[in-house]
Amino acid sequence: MIILAFFVGHWYTSLFFQTFFLHRYAAHGAFRMSERMEKLFFILTYIFQGSNYLSAYGYGVMHRLHHAFADTPQDPHSPKYDETLFKMMWKTKTIYSAVTRDRYPVDAKFKKGVPRWDAFDKFASHMASRLAWGTAYGLFYIAFATEWWMFLLLPIHFLMSPIHGAIINWFAHKYGYVNHKVNDTSKNFLPFDFLMMGESYHNNHHHNGGKANFGERWHEVDFTYLIILLLDKVGVITMKGKRSSESRKIAA
């Protein structure tokens, strides 16, 4: 039970920071947060993604390219131009690494406003850090695994962030239903997204990329958006269209 709880916990916490901080905030700016809070979420993303930490800058810029060039040869990840899932994942990794190191030709407009903390990314993405996290996962499994098959889950911990991305960028461009006619193959992969915390409503998202809520129909519950509403209510973030408390004080 401990191993399964750890696996499920890692799956959803890692996924939350990927969709909340890297995707909806860094790539799309669906809400605002202070510089201090932004730094905190860099650190929290590192803690909960662990061995597969993704740079907000690298992810944000690459995801903007995906929206701008979806299902064209310039798309960083498209089932239309990558014959297999693993080929697409490797291509994504290659482009992500190049973008993060400023070695990929990217128009300045795709970089504008994307949060960047190079010193922290260098530490969090270093192989020594990734190996340390991987070793910690392995030791945890050695200590608490009660069945041999539980160790089959261990490699997923090492690749959890890329797996989350691959589920959407592959399957949600091949299978599912469509709410909106768009100029790409994006689909809503799950009608009730219990697995990807709202990310499966990919067609909705491609129709309106800047919207914080990916769900639209009654059954399309976006669990990440519910958390976003809570964080907005307690003042951790500020939704678009709302003035910050500082602005309200100045106006008063």
Rank of each mutant, 00 (worst) to 15 (best):
T94I: 00
F31H: 07
F42L: 06
N188C: 06
M1W: 00
R32P: 06
T72R: 14
Y225C: 09
S186F: 02
F7Y: 09
F192W: 09
K112C: 07
K240V: 05
P155C: 10
D121C: 10
D102N: 15
F110I: 05
N179Y: 06
R101Y: 01
T146D: 15
E38S: 04
P155R: 05
T45W: 06
R248F: 02
T84A: 00
Y53M: 12
L40W: 02
L190I: 05
W133F: 15
R64W: 09
F48W: 07
K112R: 12
G58K: 00
F192T: 10
L22P: 07
K249E: 15
L131P: 03
Y141V: 03
G198E: 04
K91W: 05
H205T: 14
S34C: 12
G9P: 05
L131M: 06
R116E: 14
N169Q: 12
Y53S: 10
L153D: 05
I156Q: 05
N204H: 01
V61C: 02
L153T: 11
N188Y: 04
G113L: 12
N204K: 02
H219M: 08
L195W: 03
K240A: 05
E220V: 02
D107R: 11
Q18Y: 04
F31N: 14
V61I: 09
Y81V: 13
L231V: 04
D71V: 05
E246F: 14
L40H: 06
D107Y: 09
K111C: 06
L195E: 04
S97Y: 00
K109T: 15
I156V: 11
A30K: 02
W218D: 10
I142E: 13
N204P: 07
K122H: 10
K181G: 13
I47N: 03
G9H: 07
T84V: 01
S186G: 13
